[in-house]
């Protein structure tokens, strides 16, 4: 995906150009649907989150600026926050408990090493983390679990969950900023 092309598209979308919005959806939709599926674990709920995120992207394209990172970073954040809101709703929590209770829930994360330099830096820094820190960061980021849900899922005390995630993130940050 070409960040420069996405930047041109989002600027056109901010001017209300509909073909640019459709193009932006075509080029980013599959990745963002993957992000939504990863968190929601349900095609229906992932579709709902993606739709709502794109409606927001259409209306708020003018808010995008390069201080937000790449267009893809900005859009991914909108999708993630929408998913998180939906996951925190009561009915979703009930569905989710069922999915957490299932053994062998589908793993959607690609096993191969990504080629993007930013991804390689992240992979390298991830390797420096303690196993627990990494596991809990994954449960929060990829599964959208709260501290309390990680506590329930792993049996680890809440304070420990919080401090391991916090410690892991700070190490990750230091490593990525080097």
């Amino acid at each position: 995906m070409d960040p420069e092309f996405q930047l041109q598209l989002i600027r056109a979308v901010a001017r209300g150009e509909r073909p640019a919005f459709e193009e932006l959806y075509q080029v980013t939709g599959p990745k963002l649907y993957g992000v939504a599926m990863q968190l929601m674990r349900s095609p229906e709920r992932a579709e709902e989150a993606l739709q709502e995120a794109f409606v927001k992207i259409w209306h708020n394209a003018g808010d995008y600026h390069q201080g937000r990172g790449s267009v893809m970073t900005w859009m991914s954040s909108i999708v993630r926050y929408r998913c998180i809101d939906l996951l925190r709703s009561k009915s979703a929590k009930e569905d989710r408990q069922d999915s957490l209770d299932e053994e062998g829930a589908p793993e959607l994360i690609a096993p191969e090493q990504p080629e993007d330099p930013e991804n390689q830096a992240l992979e390298r820094c991830m390797e420096t983390l303690d196993t627990h820190d990494l596991q809990y960061i994954h449960l929060a980021y990829y599964r959208g679990l709260t501290h309390a849900e990680i506590q329930e899922h792993t049996g680890t005390p809440l304070g420990t969950v919080k401090s391991w995630i916090r410690r892991g993130l700070q190490r990750l940050k230091r490593c990525l900023e080097e």
């Binding site: 459709e22 649907y33 259409w58 201080g67 937000r68 993007d116």
Partner: peptide
């Protein structure tokens, strides 16, 4: 924003999936 950018590469490990056609139809409608 800084944290969003630090963590965004984690999405690099997530596989893209083609959303159903109805998703775009619904976005267009809304």
């Amino acid at each position: 924003w800084h944290w969003e950018q630090l963590l965004a590469p984690m999405n690099g490990r997530i596989e893209a999936q083609q959303p159903p056609e109805r998703v775009w139809q619904e976005i267009s409608r809304r």
